[in-house]
């Protein structure tokens, strides 16, 4: 197992390297540069900017310099759009905000989704099941673009219970976390239900019933554990996405998170920020998927990695 983990960690290096290479050339092949403006400036002035950020160098050299900076000092370069800050500054400032919001949203999603799914599975084809299905589908089909402003309208403006937006106190975190968690909660609820139904009909559950084991023990120790494999698989990438920030929720609630920065940096052609955030996201994805794979072995001891 240790060797498996070590191998996977070593594997992440070439994956991240290829990822950086593809992203680098992808972003450079899109028309429009970081210093194009609606008011066209003389080309000498643009040349000064390109010289300053070494964009006048051949692409391969830019890439080499960029990766050398990362390898040597973990330096992800300057931001072109935010002229007084580096990519490291930006990640340091904004990742914790996104991570807090994401952790909270994930907690809401898991805390409501999984129990709802279990109940629905146990009471299959009853009104409880239908109600939870309906709720889940509703949660899934309202885009956060509409849910966010709606929650703000009700809870902040009409009921005066919570602040409208921005990121200051714990109260400010509630509405965005619910908005972000709602859709994922629905997904987890439905997935848990489906997976539970599948597992409940397995032979070993029947055996457990036959042995006369107590109901909670069967449900939790035998059924739920095995039903979690698809749920955890989906949660892996979800974790990475949600922790590194999601654009719409951060945008609607004016939250200084990394998700907003990533989308803005693409619009700005802020190359180092695009690279930095993409690599960070890639890192989280690899880590999350590794955790998922490790957890398989824990949930189902029959799964082994050579």
């Amino acid at each position: 197992m240790y060797r498996f983990i070590l191998r996977r960690i070593l594997w992440s290096i070439p994956v991240l390297f290829i990822l950086s290479l593809i992203t680098f050339f992808l972003m450079h092949s899109i028309p429009g540069g970081p210093f194009d403006t609606e008011k066209q400036v003389p080309k000498e002035i643009k040349a000064n900017l390109e010289r300053k950020y070494r964009l006048d160098q051949p692409l391969w050299r830019q890439y080499m310099e960029y990766s050398w900076g990362i390898v040597r000092h973990l330096d992800f370069g300057p931001s072109y759009a935010s002229r007084s800050r580096t990519v490291n500054d930006i990640i340091k400032d904004h990742l914790p905000v996104s991570a807090q919001l994401g952790a909270l949203a994930l907690a809401i999603a898991i805390g409501t989704g999984v129990p709802l799914g279990i109940i629905a599975a146990l009471k299959q084809n009853t009104y409880i099941d239908y109600a939870s299905t309906f709720l889940a589908i509703l949660g899934r089909s309202i885009p956060s673009l509409a849910l966010g402003p709606f929650l703000i309208w009700i809870f902040a403006l009409k009921l005066h219970l919570l602040p409208v937006a921005t990121w200051e106190t714990p109260q400010h975190m509630i509405l965005p976390a619910i908005t972000l968690g709602a859709a994922e909660s629905a997904l987890l609820a439905r997935l848990t239900r489906a997976s539970m139904l599948q597992v409940l009909r397995e032979d070993y559950i029947r055996t457990a019933w036959a042995k006369g084991l107590p109901r909670p023990s069967i449900m939790l120790r035998h059924a739920l554990k095995n039903a979690l494999i698809p749920v955890i698989t989906v949660m892996g990438p979800l974790f990475a996405v949600i922790i590194t920030g999601t654009f719409i929720v951060e945008y609607i609630f004016a939250i200084p998170g990394l998700g907003r920065y990533f989308i803005t940096s693409i619009g700005n052609r802020d190359y180092p920020v695009i690279m930095g955030t993409s690599l960070l996201f890639g890192f989280f994805i690899i880590a999350a998927n590794l955790l998922v794979d490790i957890s398989y072995a824990f949930i189902d001891p029959r799964i082994r990695y050579q």
Partner: peptide, 13 residues
């Protein structure tokens, strides 16, 4: 606050 409708709600609040 980039989103206009959020800013509007904040103003009203």
């Amino acid at each position: 606050i980039e989103e206009e409708s959020t800013a509007m709600t904040m103003y009203e609040a």
